[in-house]
Structure formats: structure tokens, C-alpha cells
Design a protein around this nucleic acid. Structure first.
Lengths: 208, 208
DNA sequence: TAGATTGTTAATCGATTAACAATC
DNA sequence: TAGATTGTTAATCGATTAACAATC
């Protein structure tokens, strides 16, 4: 079982490129071709594939359909994943309305917020009060939550989510969450990303 | 000159923790304390500091104020950075309104979009048509852009930005941009992040 | 002084890449 | 068959950690 995050991310990238190839009418790819398309060395492609148990034919390359089918299963693309959004501020609202998720098999099932003004159970994506969070997660068997609350509220919300049985959190609060239970957390720290860019931009300038 | 991305990200983290310590009235920290607070080994803290030329006193630890001052300069916190947002869809709009940027010295100066309906030069953060992009960047000496257009429009928009002189791009389109010139690109791929969570969530379940 | 903490060097670890035998 | 490409092993690379001498 592959537990390397980068490796799994590359798998997503391969998959996307393969779908493109398939659309163009291709049936097979070589590690070389796919590497080119994804910015990865051919050796890396072959290594990754063998790690995930995807085999090709010496000299014949890899069959695109076979690869896609296997990836489908590995990445859980064989079913639609229901995700909730906790915190319906700017970011939360944007993600609730974010279209591209749909075609990726990700469906935003509901939003949650403490602010009574934001509650709207009748909306296309219903927004419920935080009190309903736990029962909703349990009833609908939600596993993944997007956490888009403020920095100060994030840890508490995280604890609630874990307690309710959430096992994956995409966190937009600019802090390192310290989970109480067994949960996978990916953090998108926008400030840090920009800070990073500012730093490297400065370096670029100095190099000239 | 440190060109390691992870290392710079840690610097952001240290800075944040140090601000917290300072607020609590602390004057010095040890690599041990700071490591604890940021989830980094003390050795890593010291290594990072020495890489950035920040020194402490043997036995005395590091002076918080001195560290912060140095970090301020390294991370460009001594000035306000004007950033533009290209693509005023769900994500773009959310980022334009995202409050926490302000206290981080990041100011969203303007938005740009091709859709005439979205243009609004009178708004608090004015939204201009794409035609004005290049002249705006040049005139206002913008260095960093947030790219929040659709996947199909992203590469072209990227080229425009680079041509106009942008040196840092925070990209939200789920593709690997292939820049024409010298530009630093950080990509936030939301689909991939969720896909990743789905994968690891599945693993967690199987382990039980 | 004795003790604690830095700063740096060396060791370790993990991930990527190169190389090449196996084989289609 | 000759040639090309996989699959895997070994080499390389880079980043993290451990260790410890220097020193406050």
C-alpha cells in the first residue's frame, strides 16, 4: 500500500494526462511519452506504476484503458464522493459553488456555519447550523470535509469533525491542526503560498 | 541565498509562532521551544536559522525581536505587496474579498476578467477587462498575480502575465503551467488535494 | 565552574534517477 | 532476429536528524 503523498499526487496527474491521450484516440503509452506529458522522468513513471501494481509490456508500453481502470479504483473514482464544507465565508462559499469538482466525482453535499444568517436548508447546496454537523455526518456517512472557518475557530471545528467520524480534512485555515484522532489533513495555506512567491520573486529580481 | 521552498515555508511558520510568543511577553526562544510550537525538530530550526544567517547565543537561545526583524526583511514583510487576481469567478471573487491577507501585508489591488458583466472599475477592488491587464501591471509595477481562471484559459492567461512582467503566480487552475519566461509558479490544485484525501481516507479505513 | 544550548559536521533517511538485464 | 521498452536494482541526490565540540 503506497503511503507517499507525492506519489499519489503524481497518480492523479498521470490519470489526467491519460484521459487526454485516450480522447486523442491513443490506445497505448510509453513511460517516456507519459513522462513528457506530466513533467516526470520516465523512470519515475515506471517506478510509480510498479508501486501501484500497474504493469505494461516490454516493448509494447502500457495500455491506456487498463491503466485508467486500475487508477479509477485506486483513486476511488468508481464512486461519487460526498464532501461537506464547514464555514461558509468567502472561501467556503466559493468552494460550494466550484463547478469543476463535479466532473471529478466530488459532490458538495452541504455547508455548515455558526452564523444564523447563512443558514439555508432549502438552497441547492443546503447550509445547516453547526449543531446539525455531527448527526449529518453520521447519517450521510460523510468522510471528507473542507474546513474553511477562521483561524481561531479552526482547531475546535477540526475536533468536532474528527469526533463525528470525518477521516479526511482539507484545511484552509492558516494553522497546523492538531487532530485528536486518526484523520488525514491536507492544508492549503494561502498566505504562506503568497509569502513564498514574494520571497522567490525577490530572489529572481536580485539575480538579474 | 536559500532556494528551498520547504525551508522558506518553515520560515513563515517560525515567524507566526514567534509573533505569538512575543505577544505572550517572551523575549527569547530556544530551538527546542520553537520546534515544539511549529512541529519541527530543534535541529531543523537551528539549521534553518543558520541557513538564513540568523544567529543565537550558545546557552542564551535566540532573541525574538532580532529574529522577527530579520525574517521581516527576508520575507518582504517590510512593505505591502500589491497582488492582482486574474479571473473573477467563484475562487477569484473569494480571494479578492479574503480578509486575512490584509494583516499579512498583502493587498489585492485589482481583478481582471474577460466577462464584461464582471467589469466594475468603481468597486472597492476594481475589476478591469483583460485588455487593461498589461498596462496595469506595468504602471503599478505588480509582481504577483493570482490566476483563478478556468483550466482551458489558464495557459494563455499565464503567458499574458509573464509577458507583462509578472514574476510570481499563484495558480488555481488544475494544470501544470508551462511558463515562457522566468517566473515562479505555485499551484493550488483543489481537485488533486481532495483526490489525495480520498485515497488516504480509503487506506485509513482498510487499516482498521 | 558546571551546565545548557548553539552551530556545524557527519550519519541517516527517503525519494529520485540511472542503468541494465529481461523480454516482447 | 534486432531493437525497443519494461521492471527492478543500484547509485545518486537532497533533505532531515543526530551528535558533539565550541562557548556563553
Amino acid at each position: 500500500m503506497v503511503v507517499n503523498k507525492k506519489c499519489v499526487s503524481r497518480l492523479s496527474r498521470y490519470r489526467k494526462a491519460l484521459l487526454r491521450f485516450k480522447n486523442l484516440g491513443f490506445v497505448k503509452v510509453f513511460s517516456d511519452t507519459l513522462g513528457d506529458a506530466t513533467g516526470v522522468t520516465p523512470a519515475q513513471v515506471r517506478k510509480d506504476f510498479s508501486l501501484f501494481g500497474m504493469v505494461g509490456k516490454k516493448r509494447g508500453g502500457y495500455e491506456i484503458d487498463a491503466l485508467l481502470e486500475k487508477m479509477q479504483v485506486i483513486l476511488g473514482k468508481d464512486q461519487i464522493h460526498k464532501v461537506i464544507v464547514v464555514g461558509v465565508g468567502n472561501i467556503g462559499r466559493a468552494l460550494i459553488q466550484y463547478k469543476p469538482f463535479e466532473k471529478d466525482g466530488i459532490s458538495i453535499a452541504a455547508g455548515f456555519d455558526i452564523d444564523p444568517v447563512k443558514i439555508n436548508p432549502k438552497a441547492q447546496v443546503p447550509i445547516y447550523p453547526m449543531q446539525d454537523l455531527k448527526s449529518y455526518i453520521r447519517k450521510k456517512k460523510i468522510e471528507i470535509a473542507i474546513l474553511a472557518v477562521s483561524e481561531i475557530a479552526a482547531q475546535e471545528a477540526c475536533d468536532l469533525l474528527v469526533d463525528a467520524g470525518i477521516t479526511g480534512i482539507l484545511n484552509f485555515a492558516p494553522i497546523r491542526l492538531q487532530p485528536l484522532g486518526d484523520v488525514e489533513i491536507n492544508t492549503v495555506n494561502l498566505q504562506m503560498e503568497l509569502e513564498n512567491l514574494i520571497y522567490f520573486t525577490k530572489i529572481l529580481k536580485h539575480r538579474k
